[in-house]
């Protein structure tokens, strides 16, 4: 068990069994690039000859490992393009990694920023459609709908086409739908940052409920403040690499200090912060063992 994630977080929801195990995850993309300079490989020359653009490899994630447990809410911080959303999309099973594996107790529910489900129909019809998509029966849907409407808190707008919603309203409705089904693993990509104070409080309450019923929540945001307020643990990603993995407050503050220095142009200080945090990170070695198998694949660590 990692000593960095304390067994009983500040709000008293105890940690349970692992729900998500991420082992040596890497994602490399090949994308078109107009970048000049660096020497052309043979592949580039062939592509140029037939009129295709030159490609470069982008390391969206590089050797990331961690284990999430029931009752945890894990914030993922990092600047734009650091691999936060890629990580979430892979944990959600929407993308396949280049190498490494992600195991989970159930298929995670993923909430992303592009919130409009079926823009032409009303919020109410979208609620029903979303709940049915998550495998609820029509009877359960009838039961859950009032709860979703209340949690979304968008008033009469629920009867209007979703295309007329502001991005904040859309995001709240999406969160309410996903949370209503009490998912075991909930992944949220910047969705809550747009809520007002009242809806934020309702969302926070619902997230605590999910965690207390042995759920795990991942929250991606580049606002360290949100992570500090809503999470028990935080992961800082930089250029696809893990910089820090620890209590939310500590990680979020280090990240904020770094981001502040970057914004001020204090690149030396920022580089120093990054370096120190990397040195503090204790890399996690995840070993997957199945007790049902007679011969353990690894000898136990002493």
């Amino acid at each position: 068990m990692s000593e960095l994630s304390s067994p009983v977080p500040r709000d008293g929801i105890p940690l349970g069994e692992p729900t998500v195990s991420v082992r040596r995850l890497s994602v490399h993309y090949r994308v078109a690039s107009t970048e000049l300079g660096a020497t052309l490989t043979r592949r580039d020359r062939v592509r140029r000859r037939v009129g295709l653009p030159r490609t470069v490899t982008v390391r969206a994630l590089d050797d990331v490992s961690f284990v999430a447990r029931a009752g945890e809410s894990i914030g993922v911080v990092g600047q734009n393009g650091s691999g936060k959303s890629t990580l979430l999309r892979i944990v959600a099973g929407l993308e396949t990694p280049t190498s490494g594996e992600v195991l989970a107790t159930s298929t995670p529910t993923f909430l992303s920023v592009n919130a409009a489900l079926v823009p032409e129909v009303s919020g109410l019809q979208n609620i029903r459609l979303g709940l049915l998509a998550m495998g609820r029966s029509p009877a359960e849907v009838d039961e859950l709908v009032p709860d979703v409407i209340k949690l979304a808190g968008i008033g009469n707008a629920v009867h209007r086409p979703m295309r007329s919603y502001s991005s904040g309203m859309g995001a709240r409705l999406r969160f309410a739908i996903a949370a209503a089904a009490r998912p075991e693993i909930l992944l949220i990509d910047e969705a809550l940052a747009t809520g007002d104070a009242a809806s934020k409080e309702r969302s926070e309450k619902r997230m605590a409920e999910i965690r207390s019923t042995a759920g795990t929540i991942f929250l991606v945001s580049h606002a360290a403040q949100t992570i500090e307020e809503m999470c028990t643990r935080a992961i800082w990603l930089h250029d696809g690499e893990l910089v820090l993995d620890g209590p939310a407050e500590e990680t979020a503050r280090s990240y904020r200090w770094w981001a502040w220095n970057v914004a001020k142009g204090e690149d030396d200080v920022a580089a120093d912060v990054l370096e120190k945090c990397r040195a503090r990170l204790r890399a996690t070695l995840v070993r997957h063992e199945d007790p049902k198998q007679h011969i353990p694949r690894h000898s136990p660590a002493s």
Partner: peptide
């Protein structure tokens, strides 16, 4: 030193 996490995978399944 590494943090070693031995995960009992009997309850876990690959995602996606």
């Amino acid at each position: 030193p590494l943090v070693v996490e031995d995960v009992d995978v009997s309850r876990l399944r690959p995602v996606g």
